[in-house]
Design a protein around this nucleic acid. Structure first.
Lengths: 239, 239
DNA sequence: TGTACATCAGTGAACGCGCGTTCACTGATGTAC
DNA sequence: TGTACATCAGTGAACGCGCGTTCACTGATGTAC
């Protein structure tokens, strides 16, 4: 019933309330309640279809046009949801990285946290990562850069480059790692009925595979002779 | 206007035909035309929204209820489309593998063909791989196994295991490689506006990363001392 | 050879539904005079 | 201290739209007698 992770927006949302009108000057409260209700509805199975403005209004205990007091249209509400989800994803990854013993392990823990987030919040992951957005190139670039999650991830990759684990441009390397993590995450979200093996190990293996492969491949392109040394280093990092 | 790859279903489809009624006993022709029109509509941008039964009927030059003569409902038509797409994907991967110099390279070429298919047919890829399907576990397992694509891919992984490149269960290893390829494929489909680097290299790199990483990781879990030898072997395979 | 009939391929019109959005309105509350 | 008024939070009813699906029907064509 409640949102799967703490929302920055306030207020619990019950099933079918008749809401008390906000006191004067507190009209903005409704914005938070609408956003929270949208998040909750989207978290349910088939959330994307379930989140109509009518459903949101009913959850909050308010009439449908009231939503337009705080969101220009449905898309604006969805945009707000995306921001919320990106922030939560970023927080989960940052928290995971905090427990790392070295920069390479930190990257691995972030990757695992990424997939675990998708596993725990499949419908939210679907909205931000699997939906087609009607953005122009500029709008989209803005949105990606505005969300800290990808930037923080690139920073971690840069740390690894500085430590000599990878060779190359951090943002380019990050894309490749992101692809691997997103691949597993989206498969789990979209194909829940696939006969998956035990997920904890699959996730760890896939993330490790990407990290090791990138280390090996980015080195291969530079100096193919140095590989044994590279592998020895990876081994020392206690992957 | 025409479908992006040869359909097993016959018949060209023009914009707004008035179709001539099929001669007696040839009623089945319409099925192929409906399927082809659905494929064509789904290939367009926003294809998933654009493919309504009304739009399909108009493309074929037939009334809407006629579709029900050959498909039980809209879902049945979508199922038929999925079969068609899976078959085309399988064919593309098989063709790519035919040009390989060794089993490991064959896997790499299949991975590249997989991503290229998604890149060339983004809306078709979206339908089969990014949509949520309302299947039960059994229905879905049947569907996956019925489509040859995944089976053929597992076979190629098995060849690599036999050749000593990977260690482990072929279907388990295949899942990890699939995740990596699907990750990049779906990112390209869903986020066309992302500031991607040159795609040919990104694709090759990502696939190679997965292959090398899996080889290294699957060996790591067995005998951590043997890594230099493994890398030397990968190098010899001219990755 | 002619005709009644079954079959076949397809149609026209309507069904109810839920959707996003808009518009004119209501009624409580604080504030200026 | 009383009252007119502006502001604010929110509402009720309707808009047009496109959708999947159903139902009774049409008209051409082959076949049995």
């Amino acid at each position: 019933m409640t949102s799967p992770y703490p929302l920055s927006a306030s207020s619990p949302v019950s099933e079918t309330t008749t809401r008390r009108r906000a006191p004067r000057g507190q009209g903005g409260e409704l914005r938070g309640e609408v956003l929270a209700a949208a998040m909750t509805l989207l978290a349910e199975p088939d959330g994307e279809d379930a989140m109509s403005l009518r459903a949101v209004a009913q959850r909050v205990g308010v009439s449908v046009p009231s939503i337009y007091l705080h969101f220009a249209d449905k898309q604006a509400l969805l945009d707000a949801v995306c921001e919320e989800v990106f922030a939560a994803l970023d927080a989960a990854m940052q928290a995971a990285a905090a427990g790392a013993s070295n920069v390479f392990d930190g990257l691995r823990l972030q990757g695992i946290a990424y997939v675990e987030f998708a596993r725990a919040n499949p419908e939210h992951y679907r909205i931000v990562m699997l939906r087609k957005h009607a953005y122009t190139a500029e709008q989209y670039a803005d949105l990606v850069m505005a969300s800290c999650a990808f930037q923080h991830f690139v920073d971690s990759v840069r740390d690894c480059v500085d430590a000599g684990v990878f060779v190359g441009e951090p943002d380019q390397l990050a894309l490749r790692l992101w692809a691997a993590a997103h691949g597993l995450a989206s498969l789990l979200v979209v194909k829940p009925y696939f006969p998956w093996p035990p997920l904890d190990q699959l996730i760890d293996d896939t993330i490790s595979m990407a990290g090791m492969g990138l280390a090996a491949a980015s080195r291969l392109s530079e100096c193919a002779d140095d590989l044994p040394a590279l592998i020895a280093r990876l081994d020392r990092l206690s992957l």
